[in-house]
Design a protein around this nucleic acid. Structure first.
Lengths: 203, 203
DNA sequence: GCCTTAAGGGAACTGTGGTCCCGATAGTGA
DNA sequence: TCACTATCGGGACCACAGTTCCCTTAAGGC
C-alpha cells in the first residue's frame, strides 16, 4: 500500500512553485485584512489568479493553507542582536516583537495565524515550529550572556526569550492592554530580573 | 429614530432566559469539543432543543454567541487567595490558571474563546472584559502586599497578576511547551522577582 | 527534443448553512 | 384574569462553498 504523495510534491518546480508563491501571498494579504474566518479558498484562488480546483486539491482547507504559510514564514529567520550586553539584547528583542505586533499588517497577520492554530491541528503544529525557530535564534544572546557571567549558570536560554515575548502577547490576545515602547521595555526588564533571580533555570 | 431593542431584551424572563441558558450550555460544550470553527448555529439549536430561527435571530453569528458566553462567564468570579504572603498568593494564582488551562474541557474552551476573540470584535471586547474582571479580583493580593511592605510602592497590581498568567498562556498558544506545576511555579517566581526589582511599576 | 503523467483550470453540479414567512406560545402590565 | 405583543418554532426556500468531471498544460526523466 504505497501512500500517494500529496499534490505538488512530485513536480514542485516551475509552475507549481509559482502557484504556491501567488497563493501564499494572497493568503497572507487576506489573513491580514479579514482574519482567519475571512479566509475563503475561492477568494484566494481569484486573487492569486489560479483555479479554484487547485486550491481545494493542494490545500483543501483554510487551516492547511495557514499551516503552509507558517512553514514558509519559518524558513526566513531574522538575525538577532549581538550587543555584548544581555540587557540591551533583550530590549532589542522586545522592541522587535513590539514592532511586529503593532505593525498594522503584521499584527493582524499574526493574530489570524494564531486563530488558525486554535482551529486546526496542522496550523498549530506549524505555529509551534515557527516560534521554536524564532526563539532558538535569539536564545544565543542568553547563552553568550551566561558565558560572560551576566546570568546564572543553569539559566534556560529559551525560557528567557519566551519570557520577553509572553507579556506582549498576553496584552495583545487577552487583556487588550496598549502595546507601546514602555510595555516592551517593561517586558525586557522583567525577564532580565527574573533570569538574574534564577527563576528561569532549566531545572 | 428610536432604535429597536435587540431580541430578548424586552422580555428577558421565563422562557427567554431558559432558552439562553440552554443555548449557552450547548455552546460551551460544543466549543470545548470542536473548537470555534466547529460552532454551527444549526447544531447548537438542535443540541439545546430550541428553534434554529431563534439562534439566528438572537445571536446571528458564532462570534456573537461566543461573546455572550464570555459575558456570562465574566459574571461568576472566583474568589482569590488571602495567605498574607505574596509569594504564596501568586503561586496559588499560577496553580489556578494552570488547572484551568490543563483541564480537558476548560482548556479547550478557553482556546476556542480566544480563537473567537481573534475572529470577531464582539467576542474580543467580551474577552478583554472577562480578563479585566479576573485580574482585578486577584490584584487585591498585590495591593495588600504593597501595604505590608513586601513589594515596592508604585508596583502595578494588575501587571503583576498579568505577569503570572502571561508565560502560561504563551506556552499554551505559541510554543506548545508543556504546562505543569513546575511551569506554574516558575511563572509565579518570575513575576515575583520582576515585581521586587521594580520592573512592574505603574510609571 | 520527446514522452509520460503530474498538476492546473474551466464549468457544471449539489448539499447545506443561513434567511424568510407566518402561525403558536407565553411574558408582562393592567 | 385578560389583552397585547415579544419571542419562539416549524418548514419552505435560496445562494454559494465545496466537489466532481474532464480536458489542457507543462515538469522532469531519458
Amino acid at each position: 500500500m504505497a501512500a500517494t504523495p500529496p499534490p505538488g510534491a512530485v513536480r514542485p518546480g516551475g509552475r507549481t512553485a509559482r502557484v504556491r508563491e501567488a497563493v501564499l501571498e494572497a493568503a497572507a494579504d487576506t489573513l491580514a485584512e479579514k482574519g482567519f474566518d475571512g479566509l475563503d479558498l475561492g477568494d484566494i484562488a481569484r486573487i492569486a489568479g489560479v483555479g479554484k480546483t487547485t486550491l481545494y486539491r493542494r490545500w483543501g482547507t483554510p487551516g492547511a493553507l495557514a499551516a503552509d504559510l507558517l512553514h514558509d514564514m519559518a524558513e526566513r529567520s531574522l538575525p538577532r542582536s549581538r550587543n555584548g550586553d544581555i540587557g540591551q539584547d533583550l530590549r532589542d528583542n522586545a522592541r522587535l516583537v513590539l514592532k511586529t505586533l503593532t505593525d498594522a499588517r503584521q499584527g493582524r497577520l499574526f493574530k489570524a495565524l494564531i486563530a488558525a492554530s486554535l482551529c486546526n491541528d496542522q496550523a498549530a503544529q506549524a505555529l509551534r515550529r515557527f516560534y521554536a525557530v524564532r526563539i532558538d535564534e535569539w536564545a544565543g544572546c542568553v547563552t553568550d550572556a551566561i558565558e560572560r557571567g551576566e546570568l546564572p549558570t543553569g539559566t534556560d536560554p529559551r525560557r528567557v526569550i519566551a519570557a520577553v515575548s509572553a507579556p506582549l502577547y498576553y496584552a495583545l490576545l487577552n487583556t487588550g492592554e496598549p502595546l507601546d515602547e514602555a510595555a516592551a521595555d517593561r517586558a525586557a526588564t522583567a525577564a532580565l530580573a527574573a533570569a538574574r533571580a534564577g527563576a528561569l533555570s532549566t531545572t
